[in-house]
Every structure is written in C-alpha cells, then in structure tokens.
Design a protein around this nucleic acid. Structure first.
Lengths: 197, 197
DNA sequence: TACTGTAAAGAACGTTTGTTCTGTTGTCAA
DNA sequence: TTGACAACAGAACAAACGTTCTTTACAGTA
C-alpha cells in the first residue's frame, strides 16, 4: 500500500476524534495539542502522510479536509444504521442499507448482483453487487447496465462509427453491437464486494 | 427573529453550494469570490448575520463551521421509496457508507483506502476502499492487511513449507516471505468502489 | 564506535488572515 | 435636496498561519 504505518494510524485516530467533535481540521498550532507534540513542522509531515494515504485532502485554498468516509461516526456507534441511510430493495427480497457516499439519488438507485465474469478485467467479479443509478442516457466510457435481448448486461459504453456499442472487459466475450436503439437501464456508480470468512 | 433577509438567503445558498463541493468554509478572501463581492469586511458582516440566524457557528478556534442540518443533502433528494423503512438522522455525526451487510463487528472494523495495484488480479484496484476487520490471526487464502517493515500491505495469506507468506495478486510484485513472526493487522471482509460520474 | 534513518523540536520568515475603521454609492422617505 | 440607512469597497495592521531549514534525540545496525 503506502508508507502508512501504525504510528500514523495513531495520529489518524486522534484527528478523527477531534474531527468528530468539531467537524473541522484546525491550524497546525492547534493540531500540536491534538497530536500531543510540540512541532508545527512535524504536524505538517503527519498531515502530508495522511493525505498520501488517502485519508485527507486539500482544497484549492490549501485547507485540509477529511475524506468523509474515514471521518464519520466511529464504527462502533453505527451498528444501528447511522446518519440518513437509504434503503434499497435488491429485488430479491433482501434489504441493503447503504450510505450517501455511494448513492446520490436514492429513489433512482438499485442494487444488482453481478453474474458472470464478462467485466472481470475491470475488477468486477461474479458475486459483486453493482450500485446502479437508473438513467436512460450515459456517456461513452461509463459502465452501464443495458437491456439486451430482454436481459440485463453490464458493459462499458463505447461508440464505433457513430453507433453505440457495448464492450465487455474480458477478451473471451464479444463486443455487442445492438441493432436499433440501445436500451440503457442505468449507470454503474458503485461496487460492493463481500468476502466470506 | 433576526434581520435575516432575502439577500442573506442568497448568500446562504451560495455558501451551501460551495460547502457541498468542498466541505469547508474558506477564508474571507475566498468567500469574496464565492459571494461575488470584493470586500472582506462585508463577508464578515454576512457571516455574522448567517450565524445570528443560526445557519453557521464558530469553533473556539474561530473557524466557521456550518450547522449541519442546513448544509446536508437537500431534503428533496433524500426521499425514500414508499414502503421502505426509514432511519432518521440523529443530527450528530456523519453518514457512513456501509451497512450491516459488510460489517459484522463494527467496533473492530476499519476502512482503509487501497493504494497501488499489487492486488489487481483479485479485482482490488487503486482507489478502492477496503473494509478490514481487525484481527491478529487469519486463515490461508484470506486477504489480509499485514504489517511489513512498519508498513501496511494488502496481500493474500498463504503457506509455504510450514511458513506463512504473503502473495500479491499481480505478477509484477514479489511474494513476501517475512522473517520472524508475521504481523497481521486485520482481514479483508469487504470492498467498496465508487465510480465518478 | 561510527553510521543511518526516523521522530520530533524549534527558530526564522514571508504570507495570509481576520479585524477595524473610514469611504463611497444607491435608494427611499420626508 | 437633504438626511438616513443599507450595501458594499478598500486601506491599514497586528496576530496567526504555513513553510522551510537547521538541530536534537534516539534506536537500530554494521
């Protein structure tokens, strides 16, 4: 991964605690107190590392902001769905609850289990759960759920000689060139995978 | 109430827009650009009014922070399909991405951003978010977060001639054969990916 | 013992920040 | 047509801020 080490994890945890209270990342001087150190320059080193590791980032103004998914309520508290969760019916009678990071438009979002390995080169595996936002249009390059021969298909949308085509991410599968109008069900906005223990 | 007028509402809306993007309230100088005015002192007047009206407040450090209920997702968007159970925001704390489907032991579970492509053949990409359950032991075949040379590494746990080894899912990376005890931070239990639109 | 690398401290410094105070402009009412 | 007030502009300034550079402490290693 990165050169993110246990020591950094300790500082991250302190920053998360502070942020949970104040919802802001304060000045380097204040962070000295938060981290329990005396050196502003060392604070900078720590923040730079945390950002390289992907936990925080900077706005164009140079202000540090947390990547929200890592600075929420402590996971311990979220055993009951926290925040303003969204319930989405997978269509199979199962009920999943997912948060706003993956879902922008709850009423238009569905979960669809991925079958087959036609998109495996895009890191989408059999058994993964696709988070799909229902839309009838998409851009070239988007991964879309299209309806081909009355079946759902997950493919990358592309264009060839002015016509839309569906490109699998697996060389063993053919490119789909729909005759007539390509029917798009939605666009892939997220992916969830669960590893069995 | 206060002398909060339509003009202030317009500024509030601009601030909300900015905040929706950057999750922070910038300096007075930057806010000049956001509000479309040229005077820092007027920015201060506006912010003071917004705080008197209860839309924002200041931390002890003097940093402006929004009152969350006014700076969240617009209510219209968070409506949930009828018939589905709805949980209500406690008012405090952020929203978390993941639900009970991915997390069994909330207090022991952490999210870690994936860096690099050493596990790409397992469909784990740079930028994905790993859901990790903290444990000190794991089984052969599990994908684990191990601490190697004081760094976090995501690899598949395997055994070779009675000794544990860490196997990357990318032929360009070497197998890691730790000398001494292999230090395991946790086990990968889930994966989340978000596609940008 | 000497060398190396990491963690942290601390001083120096130019820039940015928020604040305050004084002007300017436009509008509406008397 | 004058006065009052709200909406802004702009200058001045001390305090705070982030950055850079140098130094110290310490543990591991050769």
């Amino acid at each position: 991964m990165t050169d993110f080490n246990p020591k950094d994890a300790e500082y991250l945890s302190k920053l998360q605690d502070y942020y949970a209270n104040w919802k802001s990342i304060p000045s380097y001087a204040s962070l000295c107190g938060v981290f329990g150190i005396a050196s502003k320059s060392w604070v900078k080193t720590i923040l730079t590392r945390l950002s390289e590791a992907g936990f925080i980032e900077r706005t164009p103004d140079g202000v540090w902001v947390p990547m929200r998914q890592f600075f929420g309520r402590p996971l311990a508290e979220s055993s009951v769905p926290a925040g303003m969760p969204v319930s989405v019916d997978s269509g199979q009678g199962e009920l999943f609850i997912i948060d706003e990071m993956l879902i922008d438009a709850p009423s238009k979002t569905t979960l669809i289990p991925v079958k087959g390995d036609s998109m495996i080169e895009a890191g989408i595996h059999d058994g993964d759960v696709a988070v799909v936002e229902k839309r009838m249009s998409a851009n070239v390059g988007d991964i879309v759920v299209a309806i081909v021969d009355s079946e759902f298909t997950l493919k990358t949308l592309d264009k060839e000689r002015g016509k839309f085509i569906l490109r699998p991410a697996n060389q063993a599968y053919p490119v789909i060139r729909p005759q007539g109008v390509l029917e798009i069900f939605g666009v892939l906005v997220g992916l969830i995978r669960k590893y069995r223990k």
